[in-house]
Amino acid sequence: MSVETTPLISVEGLVTEFRTEGGLVRAVNGIDFTIPRGGTLAVLGESGCGKSVTGLSLLNLIRPPGAIAGGRITYYGMEGGKPVEITSLPPTSEAMRKLRGSEIGMIFQEPMTSFDPLYTVGEQIIETLMAHKRGLSRAAARAQAIEMLAKVRLPSPEILVDRYPHQLSGGMRQRVMIAMALSCGPKLLIAEEPTTALDVTTESQILDLLQNLQQELGMAVMFITHDLAVASEMADEVVVMYLGYVVERGPVEDVLNNPSHPYTQALLESVPRLDADSKERLRTIEGMVPTPDQMPRGCPFHTRCRHFMPGICDTALPPLYAAGPDHEARCVLVAPDFAKEPA
């Protein structure tokens, strides 16, 4: 699958910090990636790796005590092709508000929290539409809302449009949220754990729906997930994060079939597979993710790494080394000159 087209959004050296009682915590520590038009990027990692904060940073939705402390996020999807630097826009500015929704949409794990329980789902979609499209009449907005509900394959949309969120099942709510996020035709959809709260059969339907809509509408998707399988099935490219750093990134097939970073390798081996026959012990990643105030020196993963080399891994942060075409990993084992030294 070729995705070598112009970028839709690029992130360079993004740093997002949070002021806490224990001092300044870097949730995102200088990450870079680009998402091409119509492409799909999966940001993969465990809880606390900074993947959610990355998503919110893209929308400039980091609220105090957090703040984007460095780096640049540039959006190239505006009409006329003029790049917009998101990081230079004030979070509450008119331009930023326009960008959210009409250019970049977002969906979350638990749809219920993003709905107002006092309004019907139709009213909420209409509200979104009218806020972003000037001069749209209420009747026209309602027609569009029904159209959107049909687009996310909800049965009898003209009835559902007048239902309240609590009257819908989990899967239906997720569909409505997708409809709402897509109502203004964004070119990028940020989907944070969109299927984690759903049953397997429903998850499968939602993933199918997202993929179909993506092809239909030609939008790019940024998948934020902890689920390797979801990333594998949905993404073109994957970014693996650990403690705020990108530890590995590349085309999804390369990264997941031929992982280069010990963290990615261990993660893959620790997931019990449906297609595996072995009943042996799983390989595990020992210990636990350090809390952000105990950020390890050097490679962030060295405290749990199977290949930990004292004096090397705990001194300096390794850069991203090339591990293949478009494939990079932040580990000295991948460094071209490393093989010469005895391990």
Partner: peptide, 22 residues
């Protein structure tokens, strides 16, 4: 079984999955 996403390096293809929800 058909619904479970898999790590395999294949992009998601169309599958026979049940329609509707529980």
């Amino acid at each position: 079984i058909g619904s479970v996403p898999r790590i395999g390096g294949h992009k998601r293809g169309r599958r026979v999955v049940s329609t509707g929800e529980v």
